[in-house]
């Protein structure tokens, strides 16, 4: 009884749930001491302050307070640490190219870090390790996070697709059942009808049964198609295709379109154009970014432009590409 009472009472302001049923308890990941919401507002709204528990000298901030999910503080703490670490160490098996040993080693390392943080072993050193890993692998972490999000999306889409398919299947099955009942009824009546006119009973029964069999309903055909679809499960193929790394052309910054072999070499000193060299010494020219070698480069490019370019060949390729 005493324990239960304690559980529902804020140890700071002694309010209990019996008198104020809306009260909520919050904890701070610094020390996981339970404090009611109004106490948090009262004590921490003016900025960081010391934990009000006796003997606890942790400085807490209001924005770090959160609702406790697990009853056991130890579990709560470990879940928090796990979440934080796995946000940074978010590699999956795929990142190791199937090297199981390396992946296991990596998992072991992650578990070590979590254990150390949880049990206060070498905390400063482990934190440092976590931080350096985060700094070094920022790109990888971001891309993994993106991939995880995409995986989740794919999974949800697949679930939705399968649910829809199941629903459709059930509908078709019901339709088939109804049709079968109707068919049986029709066959019975047809036999009676024909028997009243014809004489050979067995012949009549056989021919009617045959027509019923031929009347394979469209619903049944649809169901068969659906089953085929489900067996192949197109969604799995789509999602695998999306995740597969694309075999692309290797990246080149100029898209392969760069004139590396110029027909001339720009000399640094060989040109004596007094007029242009003169411009290069004018202050307003230099200040705006003017450079004589730009001018020389341009003149040389223009002088050599079009050399070795056969108009006939160009026209032919243009025609091949359908440009006029």
């Amino acid at each position: 009884m005493d324990d239960d009472e304690k559980k529902d009472m804020c140890p700071i302001c002694k309010t209990d749930r019996y008198l104020s049923p809306d009260m909520k308890f919050l904890v701070n990941p610094e020390c996981y001491h339970k404090i009611c919401e109004s106490c948090v507002d009262r004590i921490f709204s003016l900025g960081p302050a010391q934990c009000p528990y006796e003997g606890c000298d942790k400085i807490l901030r209001k924005n770090k307070f959160k609702t406790q999910v697990f009853d056991d503080v130890g579990v709560e703490k470990e879940v928090d640490i796990r979440k934080r670490v796995s946000n940074v160490f978010n590699k999956t098996m795929d990142d190791f190219d199937g090297d199981l040993a390396a992946y296991n080693k990596y998992l072991e390392e992650v578990e070590d870090i979590i254990y150390n943080l949880n049990n206060g072993v070498d905390v400063a050193k482990t934190e440092e390790k976590l931080r350096t890993y985060e700094d070094l692998n920022k790109q990888l972490i971001m891309s993994n996070m993106k991939r995880n999000r995409q995986d989740l999306e794919n999974f949800e889409q697949q679930q939705k697709f399968e649910k829809e398919m199941r629903l459709k299947k059930r509908q078709l099955e019901r339709q088939i059942e109804e049709e079968e009942v109707a068919n049986r009824e029709w066959a019975r009546r047809e036999i009676v009808n024909q028997l009243s006119k014809a004489e050979d009973a067995e012949d009549v029964v056989a021919s009617v049964k045959k027509t019923v069999k031929l009347k394979k309903s469209s619903a049944r055909r649809k169901l068969e198609d659906l089953n085929k679809v489900l067996k192949n499960n197109p969604f799995m193929m789509v999602s695998n295709g999306m995740l597969k790394k694309k075999e692309s052309v290797p990246f080149t910054p100029f898209n392969g379109d760069r004139d590396l072999q110029k027909r001339y070499v720009l000399s640094e000193t060989a040109y004596h154009d007094p007029f242009i060299n003169d411009l290069q010494n004018k202050r307003e020219f230099i200040a705006s970014g003017f450079r004589a070698d730009f001018v020389y480069d341009r003149m040389l490019t223009e002088a050599f432009m079009g050399l070795g370019c056969m108009v006939i060949d160009e026209l032919q390729t243009a025609q091949l590409n359908g440009i006029h």
Partner: peptide
């Protein structure tokens, strides 16, 4: 910046 200062002989740098 060279345009802001009124340069008259700028290049592709702008």
């Amino acid at each position: 910046p060279e345009l802001l200062f009124g340069a008259r002989h700028y290049t592709g740098a702008i």
